[in-house]
């Protein structure tokens, strides 16, 4: 019996050593949108290389959670793939906080097909009908007599979020759509299948897939910035007050054309300028 207890005690001691977590003292806390997460991640890594004394703690959770964190003061920066809502502004003001938005990048999603596909342009409503499974043959939208293979992204990705919002007007993509887990995988699947249609971030376009124009507007950094390309949106970082110190420094870094904005372009988003 005593032996048994001792064994358990030894086990417990070992477990507690293993379980002891590494504490992470963060000077800058960033929370929120998973769409902005790759941007924040990349820029934070580079920033911490330059300023090793600054520790950035980064987590996702969605735009809504980021805003919540701004309101209750548990984060320095909230990532958001949408603008702040009136209700959130009101809640923040009640707590004496004044959220400040900073646009850090644009998200531009381009529909793509196989290079052999004669279709050049689809309207938003045609895209929606295709992704709802209502249009199932390319001949219905001016292509050859081929079945349409619809390729979509996993529903929790930011790319899907844009698509759902701008193309599907919040309706669900039909269950028969193929689902790929990354921009790269969609690109790969479309480039290997002449029936396929997919959508990828602007940064992933190359010659092995054919980008479609949407309502005769081509998806480019310019058409994204002037707002004429419909499947795009600005991405924000919100601070709880006018930023100062490390937070201001970090935001300057991310908005700097030669620093943060360059990295943003590298990972497939549209830089601000």
């Amino acid at each position: 019996m005593i032996h048994q207890k001792r064994k358990i005690a030894i086990m417990a001691a070992i477990m507690s050593v293993i379980g002891a977590t590494i504490s992470f003292a963060g000077n800058i806390v960033i929370k929120g949108s998973t769409t902005v997460l790759p941007i924040a991640q990349k820029v934070s890594e580079e920033y911490m290389k330059l300023y090793p004394e600054v520790k950035i703690s980064l987590s996702g959770g969605g735009s809504g959670n980021g805003m919540k964190a701004i309101i209750d003061g548990s984060t320095d920066i909230a990532n958001s793939s949408r603008f702040i809502k009136d209700s959130e502004v009101k809640l923040a003001l009640e707590k004496g906080r004044y959220p400040v938005p900073f646009a850090v990048a644009y998200d531009c999603i381009v529909p793509v097909v196989h290079p052999s596909n004669p279709v050049k342009d689809l309207t938003l409503s045609q895209l929606k009908a295709i992704y709802k499974g209502e249009v199932t043959n390319w001949s219905q939208v001016g292509g050859g007599d081929l079945k349409i293979v619809v390729i979509s992204r996993d529903t929790s990705s930011g790319t899907y979020e844009v698509w759902e919002e701008k193309v599907m007007s919040k309706e669900n993509v039909y269950p028969g759509a193929l689902l790929q887990a990354s921009n790269g995988a969609v690109h790969q699947a479309v480039s290997k299948n002449k029936n396929a249609i997919g959508y990828i971030g602007l940064g992933y376009l190359d010659a092995s897939v054919k980008a479609l124009t949407v309502g005769n507007v081509q998806g480019t950094p310019e058409s994204t910035l002037d707002g004429s390309f419909p499947i795009s949106r600005p991405l924000y970082m919100f601070t709880e007050k006018w930023p100062a110190g490390d937070v201001a420094n970090f935001l300057n870094f991310i908005i700097h054309p030669e620093k943060g904005q360059k990295m943003i372009k590298e990972i497939g988003f549209v830089p601000l300028y």
């Binding site: 293979v149 193929l178 699947a189 290997k192 299948n193 002449k194 029936n195």
Partner: peptide
């Protein structure tokens, strides 16, 4: 993904090899 899927598409005349 790269070899078998296109093969199935081309030889079995199916919409997608995935």
């Amino acid at each position: 993904m790269v070899i078998v899927a296109p093969f199935l598409q081309d030889h079995f005349n199916i919409a997608t090899g995935l």
